[in-house]
Amino acid sequence: MFAYICRRVLATIPVMAIVALFVFSLLYIAPGDPAAIIAGDQASPADVDRIRMALGLDRPFLVRFLAWLWDVLRGDLGVSIFTNLPVTKMIGQRIQPTLSLMVITLTLSLVTAIPLGVVAAWKQGSWIDRFSMIISTAGFSVPVFVIGYLLAYTFALDGFELGIGFFPVQGYVPIEQGVVPWFMNLLLPSIALGLVYMALIARITRATMLEVLSQDYVRTARAKGAGQHSILFVHALKNAAVPIVTVVGIGFATLIGGAVVTESVFAIPGLGRLTVDAILRRDYPIIQGVVLMFSFLYVLVNLGVDLLYTLFDPRIRY
């Protein structure tokens, strides 16, 4: 068990190294000269050269990569080209909204999708099954921003005049300033963001539950007269947990991608907005920092998922 965990943790190191190399080289070959952008409208070529030297943009690839990697390992992601602030500080400022959004989305999705999937599997072929599967397929097919606007129009602006415009339409309130406003601000974005995720989880839950429910031990449990609830939520769900958790981990990437769009739609000052702004302005250090951080998060989540397996299914030993 311990050896497995160690091996699994160590295995993430080469992956992260490749991500780092990739992220770095991607931006190394980028067109557009950040030095010229910083120098501004009226600068002379000499000024531009001076800035390029100061940024170290004239050194060879490997030197720059190693220097950069060393800085990263020491927790220094460089300084933003446009704001002159350390990237770690800019990421730090924006991490709370994004994490909050993800936590709420994740919770919301799990809480709705798993029961939905279980019920759909239990009542296979019933209207509730068909309905939930239609909804989940639709969840895959409508772009996040369309859902976001639709929700904001209905529940914040009360565009259909149903008297339900309770929610703030944009922005973020830090959790220190009150849990309720924090939650209210994030609810609509979480639903918009979570729909795809919910669809994904509901489907995998239904599929694995169908499989599990046809297994012998479930029939045995039924035969022994175990209650319906206990069969569904204790015996079956526990055994269906591994594929569900896997999908939760893999789907996390969708969540990150969706956050970029959702934060733009709902004006949430998180990492997604930072990414979009940075890319539009060619702010290399920020792009590198954010992609690296999100990738790290993603790797971490999947590491967690792998370790969870051993909890759900003690037989797993790779």
């Binding site: 904001a152 914040a156 602006l157 339409v169 944009q170 733009s264 709902f266 004006a267």
Partner: peptide, 17 residues
């Protein structure tokens, strides 16, 4: 408050945010 999205800003003003 920076709001690059026109519709978001418009909605926020109408909502008094």
């Amino acid at each position: 408050i920076i709001m690059p999205d026109i519709s978001t800003a418009s909605a926020a003003l109408q909502n008094g945010e």
